[in-house]
Amino acid sequence: MNKTTLLKALVPDVVLPIAIYYACRRFGLHETISLLLGAGAALIRVLLVAVVSRRFNGLAALVCSGFAVGLLLTFLTGDPRFLLAKESVLSGLLGLLMLGSCLLGRPLMYALVRRLSADDPRKLAEWERLWRFEPQFRKVFLTLTLVWGIGLLAESITRIPLIYRLPLDVMTGLSTALQLGTFALLIGWSLLYRQRRLGKAAASGNIRALR
């Protein structure tokens, strides 16, 4: 799964809650009820996809956990803004995890891409060789992980205060726009960076390694 496919997979989980929220608000339902219905529908969708595909991966687990925590906190506190803040909290935690991985071990992006190529032993072996002996190869994944970590953390720090300052009807849509915008910018930058690195790899005869 490349980054563009990942964004397409995330869009339904991001757009469905907001669509249901504004539909419910149009019919006069309370803000809290509208958010709960939107989050509940998105959670059910993720679970149905997992059942149909017979695959409950880490991404699905992360999305489900976020919805579950948001729903629980909303019920316990009566504050529906937790359902919006949960996504930024998860983004911030993921950003911190990425930054920490650059200091404590192999960058998280490298681990994620290796996992996506787990069914190709020869490719995994080649990547392991490049990781050990090619500094430029390590630099690619270090840069990717640092930029994504900083971007996700910045999105979280920006969005959470807005959630508690702006009206809920405004922030429900704006929150989604900020989230999708952040992912779009990060993916766009990653594709440009990858293209540039491929050009350099082609010049050195090592283009296959970065594909």
Rank of each mutant, 00 (worst) to 15 (best):
F56L: 13
L94E: 01
A60R: 05
A39C: 12
V51Y: 13
L72S: 08
S101P: 02
L142D: 04
R159T: 08
I44E: 09
L103R: 15
K139E: 15
C102L: 12
L83F: 10
L104P: 05
P135C: 12
G66M: 03
M109R: 04
T32A: 11
S117A: 10
I44Y: 11
L37W: 06
L142N: 03
K139D: 15
F137S: 04
G66H: 01
R129D: 11
G66F: 02
L48P: 10
F82A: 01
R81P: 01
T145Q: 03
A50N: 03
W148M: 01
R115M: 13
F133H: 08
C102W: 00
W131S: 06
Y110R: 08
L93H: 00
L162F: 07
L47V: 15
R122W: 00
L152F: 11
E126A: 11
A68W: 04
L71I: 09
L48T: 13
F56M: 08
T74M: 04
C64F: 03
T143E: 07
A111V: 14
R114M: 15
G149W: 00
F82E: 00
R106G: 01
G58T: 10
S156L: 05
C102T: 08
M109H: 06
K123H: 10
A68I: 13
G92L: 01
G92K: 00
V46A: 08
G40K: 07
K86P: 00
P80N: 05
T77V: 09
A125D: 12
R115H: 14
L73S: 08
S53C: 11
E87S: 07
W148G: 02
G151E: 06
L72T: 10
T143D: 06
G95Q: 02
L103K: 13
G149M: 00
R115P: 02
W131Q: 07
S34K: 05
G66L: 04
F75Y: 14
L104N: 08
G40R: 04
S156Q: 06
C102I: 05
L59I: 11
S156G: 09
T158M: 12
P121E: 13
W131K: 05
R159G: 01
F133E: 10
A61Q: 14
S53D: 13
A85P: 04
P80S: 07
V46R: 03
G151F: 04
G149S: 03
W148P: 02
G40L: 13
E155Q: 14
